[in-house]
Design a protein around this nucleic acid. Structure first.
Length: 460
RNA sequence: GGGGCUGUAGCUCAGCCGGAUAGAGCGACGGUUUCCUAAACCGUAGGUCGUGGGUUCGAGUCCCGCCAGCCCCGCCA
């Protein structure tokens, strides 16, 4: 997995958490590309250069596999014979050829183990349902389209011509559902997926709302696929089907994110670097402040803050625009960053540790138990009351950055309050009220960050 | 040629169904620590919201044209 997989994973996870919180039953499906031409390319190439990889588990390691894939892709783009062989391989795979299937299974297992490690590290819960899942339904898709009178055979390929869309030549744009060689492609799989999700169980998921979290570059593709699905009558009345696009991840320089040597950045390396930078920062701070903390604390804080920073930076900007990745910005200790929000939670935990009973002023004490006099207190109350609206908004607009913006503002208002209004040293009545505000703020921040997939800390 | 997305302060971005003097953060400059973690707080400077029209009592927001950047457009995903 590389940095390109970061956004769909993080954004999709946050949206799923919000929808679940709102009581929606969510099916978190990982639509992995485990079935198309890329496997044809890879298998064809491996047959020639490393056949052992096709019948023995872990015969080559994943890094080499990625390199082999890159070579295969190059050959595919340059060599027509290779292209044809690779396409035939896809047809064999989709037809259930046992040798192809075994090779495919081994390759998928290997990459699945890598995904799983990253998902566990990032606390992402996904059900895998890759493109291969829809293989048994591909022919039915074509048959349905045929029956609906939408199918046209053009240059040997079965297509549906799209309304209101045209290609470079000005002619209507086809959506190809079966290639001239008999193979199915991305569009077919996506149509099968839509058909399956809206279909009533047990032959489908019975969904009423289907959300696709993919990069914005696929907007045209989804517009076409959605159009065909509607015309085929697969979308029930009142059901919601939408593409939730996001922009590209770019480097600090505004260009595509790459390593110094020009390779794509591996997600694991990126997460490691975030954690390492946090650790260095934390150690420097501990030294400066002459604090003593054990190794476990350092690791725990660096890991939590580092991963939180990566997630939060991604989620805090409007997902539609391209996203400029910068360790310096996301790990900054001030501003709209994960460390800033986590620090607000830590400050409240500090008050509790120093003897503040955060359970004070519970609702059972009656409304007269709370009394506010300072503008900073009222500002905090007003901010806390916005939570419901914000979450409902995120649910409708599917924009996690709205939640981030709210949590940041809440943290700012809290920090002002913390700075200017004493809590523990206040008179009993005020102290009780202020402790209640602290508790509500901490609960709100923890809830909000939790919806973004970010855990909090007691100390940092 | 067609389509999509984007264009708001030096930089990174908010701005939700059109509503009052356009908001943050970073960076810059200047302050605050006998007190709950200063990873904080307070203040100053900085914007003809790409551009030209239109709709409206009112436009960063809606409509049309233009300019710039990125992405997509027949058998990749």
């Amino acid at each position: 997995m590389h940095v390109g997989h970061l956004r769909s994973t993080i954004i999709g996870d946050a949206l799923a958490r919000v929808l679940e919180f709102r009581g929606q039953p969510v099916l978190r499906l990982n639509h992995v590309g485990d079935w198309g031409t890329q496997f044809g390319m890879l298998i064809t190439h491996l047959k020639q250069v490393a056949p052992e990889a096709l019948n023995t588990a872990d015969a080559v390691d994943l890094g080499d596999l990625v390199a082999f894939y890159r070579q295969a892709k190059q050959r595919f783009d340059a060599d027509e014979d290779f292209q044809n062989t690779a396409r035939q391989e896809v047809v064999r795979l989709q037809a259930g050829d046992p040798v192809s299937l075994q090779a495919w299974g081994l390759l998928c297992d290997q990459s699945r183990r890598e995904f799983q490690q990253l998902y566990e590290r990032l606390d992402i819960r996904l059900s895998e349902r890759g493109e291969s899942f829809y293989n048994p339904y591909l022919e039915a898709v074509v048959a349905d389209l045929e029956a609906a009178g939408l199918l046209v055979v053009d240059a040997g390929a079965k297509c549906v011509f799209l309304e209101g869309m045209q290609g470079k030549d000005g002619n209507p744009l086809p959506l190809i559902v079966q290639k001239s060689d008999g193979g199915f492609n991305y569009a077919t799989t996506d149509l099968a997926a839509i058909r399956y999700r809206f279909a009533a169980p047990p032959a489908g998921d019975g969904a009423r709302w289907v959300i696709y979290v993919t990069d914005a570059g696929q907007a045209n593709h989804f517009a076409g696929v959605f159009q065909v699905a509607r015309r085929a009558g697969w979308i029930p009345e009142g059901a919601r089907l939408e593409h939730v696009p996001f922009g590209l991840v770019q480097g600090d320089d505004g260009k595509k994110l790459k390593t110094r040597s020009g390779d794509t950045v591996r997600l694991k390396d990126l997460l490691d670097e975030a954690v390492e930078r946090c650790e260095a920062d934390l150690r420097r701070r501990l030294a400066d402040e002459e604090r003593q903390e054990d190794e476990e604390f350092v690791q725990q804080v660096a890991t939590t803050v580092g991963l939180a920073a990566v997630k939060y930076a991604d989620l805090s900007t409007n997902r539609i625009t391209n996203y400029q990745f910068s360790f310096d910005r996301m790990l900054a200790l001030q501003g709209n960053t994960a460390p800033y929000l986590l620090y607000a939670v830590v400050r409240i935990a500090g008050i509790a540790r120093k003897g503040g009973d955060l359970g004070a002023g519970e609702a059972t004490d009656g409304p007269e138990a709370l009394q506010f006099s300072e503008p900073q207190e009222w500002a905090l109350v007003r901010e806390l009351l916005k939570l419901d609206t914000v979450i409902a908004e995120v649910e409708q607009e599917l924009l996690p950055n709205r939640l981030c913006g709210y949590l940041f503002e809440l943290s700012q208002v809290f920090n002002r309050f913390y700075d200017q209004v004493p809590v523990l040293k206040a008179e009993p009545a005020a102290r009780r009220s202020r402790l209640a505000l602290c508790r509500l703020t901490a609960d709100t921040l923890k809830l909000g960050l939790g919806l973004l997939g970010i855990p909090t800390l007691e100390r940092m």
